[in-house]
Design a protein around this nucleic acid. Structure first.
Lengths: 189, 189
DNA sequence: ATGGTGAGTGAGTGACTACTCACTAGTCAG
DNA sequence: CTGACTAGTGAGTAGTCACTCACTCACCAT
């Protein structure tokens, strides 16, 4: 199939589109189980061209993870701006809400879970560490909350991931309600 | 290579050994990235025989995950027995310590992370849900702690996983200390 | 002896997939 | 017009891996 377009998009635009496609594709089945072809199809280009812009699958995945963390930072920042007072707990709460709605579509969440699982690859582990560092330092500095509160924020974020990957929020059983209690939800679109 | 042994072990013993080998093998690189051959080598038998006892790789992985949850339950129960008082918080604390030493060798922890990542496979997701259910109901019933305390217990368990997969406990930086603060460690053997 | 049975394997096979490469086609400066 | 450049692809290749199958060997009951 030929792509007929009057004005060709340049490589940087393509890179953006590919990273976006990779975020969605890798979120489905993870680093190992997602063929690069799946990313290419989503981006509407050939697999060969994906490899021209991202020399290895690993680099592509890492770009997607990096993008994921950037998106989280943006969301936290936006959430923080909605709070007029400087109250640490109020800002932290708003950030929690913001994160909850960000991960409503699952891909941002799943990429993190997959990256954690693939963290035996040194570069992926390093990316995870870097992303976590960015988020923790940003939350601490921006909210001014106590170390304990920030730690708790991260811990319950992880709990959120567990709840979503196992689908226990759709379960209705007692133990499931216990685990998911108070976790804020925005229903998937 | 021939296995010369006077008394052949029966299939059930072999199954045990294979599950144990699978736990270690899959912990290294996860469900997708670990070839069944790796499990066979660890168990000291041929790959063909692994497939005779576990018809698919998926069933093998699930057996390993199940075994992981069983091990966790045993550990929690043993920890609970060390507490003479019936104080909920004391038992929960002991369980936390027990879990921390259980995951010191990483394989029990990594299997969970990998299973979470592979939870787009329905049977694996179901196994995760089942394991979580067993643990949550056991902890709640055995400690008699509040729902909030049990939820917190699970959340900080997940935080533990994040800390270990990203190696941030060996980092020494401020943000890393914040995240890992108070998480109990038993140094790896 | 003989034939059945359970434990175990060597040697495939077919499918998939990361990555490569030689190539086409549009665009534009001179 | 030409030649360099950029965007993009079709058709591979080499390697890996889940799973299969025909087989061997030890043991045992008759």
């Amino acid at each position: 199939m030929k792509h007929i377009r009057t004005n060709l998009s340049d490589a940087d635009t393509r890179r953006e589109a590919i990273v976006e496609a990779a975020l969605l594709a890798f979120a489905d089945a993870g680093f190992q189980a997602t063929p690069v072809t799946a990313v290419a199809v989503r981006a509407g280009i050939s697999q060969a061209y994906v490899f021209k812009l991202f020399p290895t699958k690993e680099e592509l995945f890492i770009a997607a993870v990096e993008r994921c963390f950037t998106r989280i930072e943006e969301t936290l920042e936006k959430s923080a701006r909605t709070v007029s007072s400087g109250d640490a707990d109020a800002i932290l709460y708003a950030m929690g809400d913001g994160y909850a709605s960000l991960i409503a579509d699952r891909s941002i969440l799943m990429i993190q879970v997959h990256a954690q699982s693939a963290s035996d690859v040194p570069a992926i582990r390093a990316t995870m560490r870097g992303g976590l560092k960015r988020i923790v330092t940003y939350v601490k500095q921006r909210t001014g909350a106590s170390d304990e509160a920030v730690q708790r924020f991260i811990a319950f974020g992880q709990l959120c991931h567990l709840i979503t990957t196992t689908d226990i929020d759709e379960l209705g059983e007692d133990w499931a309600r216990l685990v998911a209690r108070g976790i804020r939800h925005v229903p998937a679109i």
